[in-house]
Design a protein around this nucleic acid. Structure first.
Lengths: 360, 360
DNA sequence: AAGGGATGGGAAAGCGCTTTCCCCGCATTA
DNA sequence: TAATGCGGGGAAAGCGCTTTCCCATCCCTT
């Protein structure tokens, strides 16, 4: 390409080494005079370092990978904002890849990020139930980590990864208890897709609270659905064919919005005829009418926290068992036990919930 | 790092050159036997190409940059989805950087993307009114283009860039005409921030339609606001202090949502007391209650189209004036006249608009 | 006044890949 | 049979940077 560090050095009358040290920092000092000359020369020539070459020489890039289902989904959008802001603070660029909940695509994307040698990968896309898919992903991630890459999971990806975990199960249980507290006894649930672990996790929380209260939740009252407007809408329609719940629990806000649409279409009043709750507290949840009762998940913080974890200096255990601070170059796999950050969720009561009809 | 092409080559008993050609394609052929051996060897070793090294050797990366205000804003989220999907199809990884409508940050981010030698930059963040800021951005983009980088603007960034342009002005005019058609004569407008060109562009459309109809729009009826829920809410509050419009035109959906919240807070009925319209048709616009009348902007398509434009083979004019198809290596600045793709918008009438109160 | 750290500068060896250039052997043509 | 391509293989020269050495000063210390 155009202006190289060599040009800058020549113009400043110094060696390549000095120019490099002056512009891009190093443990070695450069005399003030020369340093100033180099900087001036760089500015005059409009020099910009050539990142791929730096990456090659340093054996380390300045990029972060974020793996998610869909950037346009506000859930992931907010996470990505948190992550990329934290990344920017650390001088990293964020590469966002969408998998659309397809394990094969996810695998390919992990390989791409690995090939790019992203410093770290944030797994915002949730874990799969399918064991074979999980195994293959683990394998690819393992290879990445073996070369010094860091991985942080934002959902349950097994115990071997650093994780930032919202209290999915507990949050769902609390939410359900809130509905029980209002007097509801007939529930219907729209979890996410059955193949994702989050769905099951949250559903488990719901069951937990219902069991506690001795309320039954038959299979006819559960209808899995994609995390989408249409998914939520269709699932709600199917549920209403076979039961008459007083409370509908959608385990994602986007799904809840679809549910609201379906209910409105059927002329049902929310919360007069039926209460509806969501999960995640995406930005528009509060602005719906009725405003959606939901579980606040600290999405932005999750993204930021994940990056913090990923960039945390990583002690490595030498064969002798003593921690040593080898740099990234001689990087071996990470031998620490994984860090886990548990983030609390919070039930947010809004206008979409009320006591069941006929309650006094 | 770990497994290099050299390892693969050695294991397959071939030269580095052959291994490279077999795995990563080239204009030269490799015999079937050797090619198979190389592929097998790569698979067995779990080889993944080292992208920074490839970039250095090829003088070209496999990344795309998208510059936007905020990933968590659905407007940009949807654009990004379109762009990154198109990029993925072309084998590119997408780097997303947020500028939060700050020209300085934008400048820094352009430099970073330049340093990464992203193949192309999609400017989804809108142009600034400030001339000095614009000049500096142009300068940085110019340097990037001088080295062969491609730039596509999604909003008005001046005539020198390839652009994908939604019909902002026309869309706003049509929207306004729709309100006029319903009988409205007293308007209030909440454009975006005054420093962004889109805001002015759309406002111009509104004025155009009002002028046509001979309806006045005094300065007291216009209140600029950030593209955000809170911005729209606060601006609406201020507007209502000093005027009693029958129609409120928010020139972004996120702003309109804020406006709805403020109106609801004041006990005003939409559309009974006042009609509200937005702009963009972000996914949740249709799911609000009342569903928002707005202008559909083909966001996803804009992103995809931008990438298509950016990746389009680029003829270059030789000094003699004859187009030649030199490859990217000897890249000079792009001498074609910029491509412009105009995308139509469409007014979508929903429940948030009705004839003004008292109309018969 | 001589020995010995610091200190700062430069030459050059890579980092992992692509691509030119050269060469060899085979098939084709005269 | 000799001349001529040509297809496919390999050696090696980079791509633009960082970093290890090595070296020359300079300033302390004894």
């Amino acid at each position: 390409m155009r202006v190289t560090l060599g040009d800058v050095a020549r113009r400043a009358g110094v060696s390549l080494a000095t120019a490099s040290r002056a512009l891009n920092g190093s443990d070695r000092n450069v005399g003030d005079v020369l340093a100033a000359r180099v900087r001036a020369s760089a500015k005059e020539l409009g020099y910009l370092p050539y990142a791929p070459a730096q990456a090659l020489a340093r054996a380390s890039t300045a990029t972060l990978g974020v793996l998610l289902h869909d950037v346009a989904d506000p859930y992931f959008g907010v996470i990505t904002r948190g992550a990329s802001e934290a990344a920017a603070e650390a001088g990293l660029l964020t590469m966002v890849v969408s998998t659309f909940a397809d394990p094969d695509l996810e695998l390919r994307n992990i390989r791409m990020l690995h090939a790019q040698r992203a410093r770290a990968i944030v797994l915002a896309a949730s874990g799969y139930v399918d064991e074979e898919a999980t195994r293959r992903l683990d394998e690819a991630l393992g290879a990445y980590r073996a070369e010094g890459g860091r991985v942080v999971a934002l959902t349950d990806h097994g115990p071997s990864y650093d994780s930032v975990r919202p209290a999915n199960r507990r949050g769902a249980a609390d939410l359900t208890r809130a509905l029980l507290g209002l007097g509801h006894r007939r529930f219907a649930v729209v979890p996410g897709p059955e193949r994702l672990r989050v769905s099951l996790d949250r559903l488990l929380g719901v069951r937990e609270a219902l069991d506690e209260a001795g309320v039954a939740l038959g299979p006819e009252a559960v209808e899995f659905a994609e995390f989408s407007h249409e998914g939520g809408r269709a699932a709600t329609a199917r549920l209403l064919e076979r039961s008459r719940p007083t409370a509908l629990i959608a385990l994602s806000d986007v799904g809840a919005v679809g549910a609201l649409a379906e209910l409105r279409g059927r002329g049902l009043d929310v919360p007069g005829d039926i209460s509806v709750v969501g999960f995640d507290d995406i930005p528009c949840a509060a602005q719906l009418a009725p405003a959606l009762t939901t579980v606040r998940v600290p999405l932005e913080r999750m993204g930021a926290e994940a990056v913090r974890l990923a960039l945390e200096p990583r002690p490595r255990t030498a064969p002798g068992g003593i921690e040593d601070a080898t740099d990234g170059l001689s990087a071996g796999p990470d031998t620490r036990s994984p860090r886990v950050v548990d983030l609390p969720t919070e039930t947010v009561l809004r206008a979409s919930t009320a006591p069941p009809p006929g309650a006094f």
